[in-house]
Design a protein around this nucleic acid. Sequence first.
DNA 1: GTGGCTGCAAAATGTTTGCACGGAT
DNA 2: ATCCGTGCAAACATTTTGCAGCCAC
Lengths: 137, 137
Amino acid sequence: MIRKHSKQRTLVLNYMKQITSHVSAEDVFEALNQEGKAISLATVYRNLDILSEMNEIKKIAHPVNGYVYDKTAEPHYHLHCVCCNRLFDAPNAYVKKLDTAMNEQSGWHIYSHSILFEGVCPKCSNKADANDRSERF
Amino acid sequence: MIRKHSKQRTLVLNYMKQITSHVSAEDVFEALNQEGKAISLATVYRNLDILSEMNEIKKIAHPVNGYVYDKTAEPHYHLHCVCCNRLFDAPNAYVKKLDTAMNEQSGWHIYSHSILFEGVCPKCSNKADANDRSERF
DNA sequence: GTGGCTGCAAAATGTTTGCACGGAT
DNA sequence: ATCCGTGCAAACATTTTGCAGCCAC
């Protein structure tokens, strides 16, 4: 389908390229409106999906909070904090050879893979320690 | 919380232990009722969550179809067919050392990880080939 | 008898869709 | 002029919740 330029799609894309974490459609909707940029929630949903399709961003299934969008479509890995449920990018590089290996091993045509680490982020670890301490006294 | 035995939870657990793929709550609901085992959808949801909590099964975010449940809580890897959207277990073993490595690299307390391979399953590859062929003639 | 578990229906949540209008090409 | 994109509200799919009665302990 031939896509036309639209002010709203540009708003969404610019917002996505500037964020550092991972956002829901609702997040984008609220952030843009807070900035005074009027846009409807349905349009945010539509454009996030279109931008995913255009490989500008990536839609990912959050382990507990529905779908979130990633500022890039480049494959990389994630850390999920089971305590605060936030999602972070992992610091290591993408291991492309896992794809070719799985390709041969499974008989599938593999495009890419993603790794999701489950754990507790430093912030929540500290909070837990503080709680442990306070519980002891 | 103290858990009491219930006929319905046993039904759900038995069903989960016997399946080979990955199922939604709706799937479990329909399958059990088809077998003549009366159970309500809300109870299926409740028990799937309880069983996850008890580490008998695992709730996973399907990349496109909401949540599905895995017959085991043992960490392992998955293959997702972007064509038919079915989810399969990967044939390779869990690499525990990825967790310790990420632990050191990130400063997080890592529990486990999962790898999701994206690709096209053999069945869909064949279908696509057939289509290509038919389109040519 | 207490308190968890169930079915049912209602509610809540998250996302998509139909439609008439406005804007890009 | 065409037809894609928008806002709005309604529709929709999925999951959760409140409640009264039932059942396990």
